[in-house]
Amino acid sequence: METEYKLKPDLGDILRFIRNFLKRLEPLGIDEEKLFDIRLTLEEALINAVKHGSREDKTKFIFLKIKASAKILEIEIEDEGQGFDYENLPSPAQDANLEKLSGRGVFLIRNLMDKVDFFNRGRKMRMVKYLK
C-alpha cells in the first residue's frame, strides 16, 4: 500500500483521519502493541505539524506519504512551517524537565519508531517501523 495525502491543519480532521487510516492497516495484521506505537507517533507528529509547523494557518497544508507492507511501515510528514532545531531539543526525560508540560512528542516518536530522520530544517520527518 502506498498513499499520499494533502491534509488541512485542522486538529479534529487530523485525528479523524488517523482513526480511519489505522482501520486501513487492519488487513496487515499488525499486533496491538505496534498499532499503539504507530497511532501515538502519527498523532504526535501530525499534531506537531498542525500546532508548530502550520500554526493552524488554514492556507497551509501538511503532506503525508505512507508506504506499508507486511514487513515495514514508512511514514513521511512534511509541513509548510519554519522548521525546528531537531538536533538540540531538550530531553523531557531529564530530571529538570520532568514537570514540563510540553516537549514529549518528538521524544516519544524517537523512542517508539525504529528509525526517524529529519530533512529540510525539520519541516520534513521520515519514520520507519518494522512490523515483522
Partner: peptide, 15 residues
Amino acid sequence: EKVRSIFEITKLCKL
C-alpha cells in the same frame, strides 16, 4: 503494560 511503558519511556514513573 503498554500505558505504563509510556510512563517509563518518558521517565514520568519517577515523578
